[in-house]
Design a protein around this nucleic acid. Sequence first.
DNA 1: ACCCAGGGTAACT
DNA 2: AGTTACCATGGG
Length: 265
Amino acid sequence: MKLVIKNSDIDIKRTFQCGQCFRWKQDADGVFRAIVGGKQITARETADGVVVESEHSRGFLENYFDLNTDYGEYIRRFSADPVLKSACGHSAGIRILRQEPFETLIGFIISQNNNIPRISGIIERLCENFGERADGGFAFPSAKRLSGITAEELAPLRAGFRARYIADAVRRVNSGETDLESVYAMPLGNAREYLKQIVGVGDKVADCVLLFAFHKLDAFPKDVWVRRVMAEYYPNGLPECTRGAEGVAQQYLFDSIRADGLIKV
DNA sequence: ACCCAGGGTAACT
DNA sequence: AGTTACCATGGG
């Protein structure tokens, strides 16, 4: 399957490097590659648009990249607020991916009190050690594949204190104590409390999973960077124009504050 | 040597 | 309900 997306509809560099995903890497030739759902996807920018190639179906790719959503509509809405308008100007082209729930859960458990390069490294070692070999790399291991794993057996990941959190999440998903599929139908508050039953999952990790896997756009993960933005620009909370799409606004703010160190109003 | 990183937990007031 | 030390690891 080959898919071409208009350049104005996506900025793959920002989309893949804005902290929502950890497995997309850019090769020396400029091509982005990742194993998603057990199959490789490549994406590259050309003058004619962003070319996406994979053995996945068109439907899978459209869903993954959220191609049936007009992000220009969000940007128009957010532009009622001067700070967000500035953030949109800087971070336009970011799209919220629909990632696999288990992979996203483990990824953001690993993310706590950690930095993005090291998160990627731990996940890479998880895939190399326990994932199935796939075309061009290793798939992210399923919960079933990790069944029964202990924190000690996860030592090669060098995940530190997070190893037992990973082990607990695997155990819960395999026992059915946590049914990730059921989260799709839950409203935000219920879904958050449900995921927080997993040891090592608090408000922030839960909201990241709800936004980046379950596509709950009203989730608003507050990490250290977003807290800084809130303290400086929104001491009384987010503006009305973000209602229902707080998570999209969050990504523009996160990417802008991190990239530039500040948002220029 | 010290501080920080897409935080959470447990043990305190 | 709101604070605080501690948690492994690695880079600046």
